[in-house]
Design a protein around this nucleic acid. Sequence first.
DNA 1: GAGGTGACTGCGA
DNA 2: CTCGCAGCCACCT
Length: 115
Amino acid sequence: MKTDPSFFDKVYEVVRHVPYGRITTYGHIAEYIGAKGASRMVGWAMNASHGGDPPVPAHRVVNRTGLLTGKHHFQTEDMMQRLLTNEGVDVKDDRVVDFEKLLWIPVKEMKSELG
DNA sequence: GAGGTGACTGCGA
DNA sequence: CTCGCAGCCACCT
């Protein structure tokens, strides 16, 4: 079908599946939608997620090092960190503390969900 | 149709 | 450890 969901829609859906108090990375999202290596597109999609409906918790998406690289694209630079801390995710120096523990992998978690 | 952009990632020095 | 380069692919002009 040429009317298949856009690349962006795939990204949005995965991000929306990220549970509360959890985070994921661009690479894992890209891999899940079959665009492994195209992690840049994920971030690009996030930029278009503003005003999306339903809203996309872009603040739960960070780079592979847990760094809040996209915080500059929020309403305010401290918005991303604030949202994360609000969910119980501790952030320090623009990095997610114990981000590996809070890391949520769609390719892994979503698969289990299907079963 | 062609060129430029980007909220990333991996590898080498 | 830090710094730089190349690959990746959809969207915009």
